[in-house]
Design a protein around this nucleic acid. Structure first.
Lengths: 148, 148
DNA sequence: CCCGTAATAGTAATCGTTACTAATAACGAC
DNA sequence: GTCGTTATTAGTAACGATTACTATTACGGG
């Protein structure tokens, strides 16, 4: 095990991530912690976030587009993202049938398949309210599988 | 609909993606096309890939880490990635039970949930061969859900 | 209280990608 | 075929997110 030290910068970063009521990125944490420690550097925030992730105190969600997000919620959960406003909410994880994973393992020619990365996309209630008839085209559409 | 023109650069990019027997990134396509059109610029490759994606001729898979990958396989499929060597193979999509999606929609407070982003992780056969007893620690471990 | 060394502030550098510019070439009209 | 418009190009600069570097500071075990 590597040696971790408890600095006030790291503590402030952890506190900021914990009090966030969303999934903050490094920049948000930086701005937040700066109110308490004005001289902190962005690099320190990045290092603290990486360290806290390594310590298992927070989770890191690198995104396909945009900066990585951080999450103080360590419980098993998936993310549901509104492709209109980008808002992300935590939702329970969906268990995949073991036989599906076995089929995937077999057809993929793998020794084992032991990770599932799952995310959901849709339109949140708020965005659905002020919605015009023709489904706008400026939506975020990451790689994945559309249904309906 | 926007107007698309057929240039030899774009055709060469499409051909390169189609003949790739893996999921190439922009750099690979660039090097590949350069053998045919030495003067092509990397920016043109990026623009061609974006254009072809918009035309629906290829698919783009932006990744959490590293460059976006491109795929000429338009069939519905998911990706299985070896966290040792990074190799990605296509596997059939797993259908999620509609009641799970409905539960997710409800608990998330969304108007609708119509996208699922799914990826699998594991160890491919090749990497499992030359494997040392203690499960090495230098593995790629993106955000997701571990099983077992 | 002291020392080894992890962590820091500040800054430069990296990587993938997009934006900009003037020049070129597709392609529909004639 | 010729023309004109305009999408596309080559080349390069700029961008955002992140990491690397360096000298300095400060944690925390002994």
């Amino acid at each position: 095990m590597t040696k971790f030290r408890n600095t006030k910068q790291k503590a402030a970063v952890l506190a900021a991530v914990r009090r966030a009521h969303h999934h903050p990125d490094a920049r948000w944490v930086y701005e937040e912690v700066r109110r308490e420690i004005p001289g902190i550097s962005l690099g320190t925030v990045y290092r603290a976030l990486a360290s806290l992730t390594a310590e298992g105190l927070i989770r890191e969600y690198p995104q396909a587009e945009g900066p990585a997000l951080y999450d103080a919620n360590l419980d098993d959960h998936s993310h549901l993202r509104c492709r209109r406003c980008g808002r992300i909410v935590d939702v329970p994880t969906v268990e995949l049938p073991p036989e599906s994973l076995e089929a995937i393992r077999r057809v993929g020619g793998f020794a084992r398949v032991d990770q599932v990365f799952l995310e959901f996309g849709g339109i949140c209630d708020r965005c659905a309210q002020g919605e015009t008839k023709p489904d706008g085209a400026a939506d975020t559409a990451p790689a994945g599988h559309n249904i309906n």
